[in-house]
Design a protein around this nucleic acid. Structure first.
Lengths: 122, 122
DNA sequence: ACCTTCTTCAACTGATTGGTTGAATACAAG
DNA sequence: CTTGTATTCAACCAATCAGTTGAAGAAGGT
């Protein structure tokens, strides 16, 4: 299979599934309750739930015939960690770029013919 | 088409695309440079870039024959806003749950037969 | 003009996805 | 044991996706 981070992103790439997650932040729900607002079959919602479960976003526990769905919010951290890491790097790069631009105002009208200077990023 | 948030999540649900984004936080790159490390065709990478572009994660500007790819990190905020909103709600719910559990220690051995008490969440 | 380089477009393919319907399972209640 | 309710499994279908190969477009170098 693919890695969990991919599964989490993929799971949240669907508006219906995001809406389900949103509703589950308020309270646990059964499959039938979750399916009610959408005009798709209960089976389709059950499949969506399986996607969320495989991503580790929800768990299901048995309770009589019902299978209450519970949100596992810790997985959110997996995403925020990834996002924040690269957001930070991108921002650092902008500040570095600012420094470069400031320095460029000095030797402006100089050699421009040394093409392909992307170098080897450390 | 689908909404942007869905497109962003879907775009990042692929390890290759995430890796490209990661590399683009360091510096802009051409399609060929981006394609080099992966053992897929350049065309495949070009398609991946189209996905990232449609999600608003990157832009391409022309520069001679080259089309340098530039990361647009602002879109990350779209995700973090969504994630943080519901993470917060989930956490609030846990604290509420703690309060309920504390109160339940009082009237513990009481009526248990009033099923389906999920009520109407305000 | 011609050739080369970088990139995209087009058509095709196999795998995955999101939906359907119908049958099967798991319990609880008569 | 039969019925009813909640849920899932299985098979199918249309659409999308990630990859391929081959051709075309765009811009520079000679």
């Amino acid at each position: 299979m693919t890695d969990q981070l991919s599964r989490v992103f993929a799971a949240l790439a669907d508006p219906t599934r995001r809406d389900m997650v949103a509703r589950l932040t308020e309270a646990d729900h059964t499959v039938n309750e979750l399916a009610a607002p959408y005009d798709v079959s209960v089976q389709a919602v059950s499949k969506h739930l399986k996607v969320l479960e495989d991503a580790g976003l929800v768990t299901r526990t048995r309770e009589a015939q019902r299978r209450p769905v519970h949100l596992e919010a810790e997985v959110f951290d997996l995403m925020t960690r990834w996002i924040e890491r690269y957001r930070r790097r991108a921002e650092e790069r902008f500040t570095r770029l600012d420094a470069v631009l400031a320095r460029m105002q000095d030797d402006d009208t100089t050699h421009r013919s040394t093409a392909s200077q992307e170098g080897t990023a450390s």
